[in-house]
Design a binder for these strands. Structure first.
Length: 154
DNA sequence: GCCAACGTTGGC
DNA sequence: GCCAACGTTGGC
C-alpha cells in the first residue's frame, strides 16, 4: 500500500465538492504532465492520498481520499470540448491515465503549507522544495505518519 | 540534440 | 498582480 498527494485548485475541484457528490467518488482528470502521470500509473486500489488545495487563500492539505480504481483512461483527453482535450492521444494508445478517488475525510482546519514547512522532518519532501509544481507526488509511509500525527493533534 | 521562447504553476 | 521556477515546443 502506497501514499500520495494530489493537488487541485479548490476553485475547480475541492474536497468539499468531492464529499458532496452522491457516491463521493470522482475521476481525477486533467493531469497533463508526464511526471505526474507516471505517479498516477503507479497507484493501486486501496492506496491513500492527501487532497491538497493550491492557489487559494490557505494552500495546504484539506482532506484524505482513497484510490478506488487504478489505471483509468482519462476520458477528457478525447473530448474536443474539454480544456484537457489532447488531439494527439488515441483510444488505442491513450496518453493520459489516472485514477478514481473516494472521499475519506476532511481535514479541518486545513493543514496549511506554512504548518507543513514548520515540520523539520518534512524538509526533504518534494512538495516543500522551492519551485515545485508537480501536481501528483509520492508520500513515504514515514511522511504520512508524521503528517497524520499532526492532523490528529489538532 | 541543443536551446531560446513561450506558457503554466503556484506561493506570496 | 507579480515573479521565480519549471515544462514544453519548435527551429535549427
Amino acid at each position: 500500500m502506497n501514499y500520495w498527494l494530489l493537488k487541485s485548485e479548490p476553485t475547480s475541484f475541492s474536497i468539499n465538492k468531492l464529499s458532496s457528490l452522491p457516491r463521493q467518488k470522482d475521476i481525477w482528470d486533467g493531469v497533463r504532465n508526464y511526471q505526474a502521470r507516471n505517479f498516477l500509473k503507479q497507484m493501486e486500489v486501496g492506496d491513500l492520498a492527501f487532497f491538497y488545495h493550491s492557489s487559494c487563500d490557505i494552500p495546504g492539505i484539506a482532506g484524505l481520499v482513497k484510490i478506488t480504481r487504478a489505471n483509468v483512461v482519462d476520458p477528457t483527453q478525447f473530448d474536443p470540448q474539454s480544456d484537457y482535450y489532447d488531439p494527439k492521444s488515441t483510444p488505442d494508445n491513450p496518453r493520459w491515465i489516472t485514477v478514481e478517488v473516494q472521499f475519506v475525510k476532511k481535514i479541518n482546519p486545513i493543514l496549511s503549507l506554512t504548518a507543513l514547512k514548520n515540520i523539520k522532518k518534512l524538509h526533504d519532501w518534494a512538495l516543500l522544495k522551492q519551485g515545485n509544481r508537480l501536481s501528483v507526488l509520492p508520500v513515504t509511509p514515514l511522511q504520512w505518519q508524521i503528517i497524520m500525527v499532526k492532523i490528529e493533534a489538532v
